[in-house]
Amino acid sequence: MGCCSSKKVGRTPGYEDPTILASETPFTESEVEALHELYKKLSCSIIDDGLIHKEEFQLALFRNSKRKNLFADRIFDLFDVKRNGVVDYGEFVRSLGVFHPNANVEDKINFAFRLYDLRQTGYIEREELKEMVLALLHESDLILSDDVVETIVDKTFRDADLKGDGKIDQEEWKELVKKHPTLIKNMTLPYLKDITLAFPSFVLSSEVEDIE
């Protein structure tokens, strides 16, 4: 990956005071600052404008900027809170905060619901679930017959759709997660607890900036 020409912390678009970000997220101030190192790395990997574009997000996830993936698209869209096609620093830190091991479980459950509510109707519909299963199978080069896919989706709906109206609402989703807590396992990134170890270069680069 490339490297930004700009080293000034304040030039990052959407840059926010680490104290404020730390007060609104499960991160400490030094973790927020360490995340800035990661953000700078990601946000200048293709387009050096200090913002994370979808291609840069894909590059970071898959080592391939052109790789299309339904789930990566959804994550990016949820990170892009302002819906302007890019993820700025504040959006990045706040969104990643949901994945922190100490983040509120309710927030994780809600985030996962929004992620799977592909068309943002307020419900996870049967068609959406099937679309996600097919996308996962395609991504994994797994071939299952349509009958088997239908069986998987049916079984999940029998488990989740308590009201039997053919769609899963937030309340039903919460009940499902209560029954199967592993469903939100991917909403926690253990790495986020050791972020300052992962990006110790922050300490060095901030000292350099002070001298400049």
Partner: peptide, 26 residues
Amino acid sequence: ASPVTMNAFELISTSQGLNLGTLFEK
């Protein structure tokens, strides 16, 4: 577990596109 016996959401959660841990790999 066989995909057939898995909850669809459990299956989906294994997607690489949902594995944000990759962002932290150097």
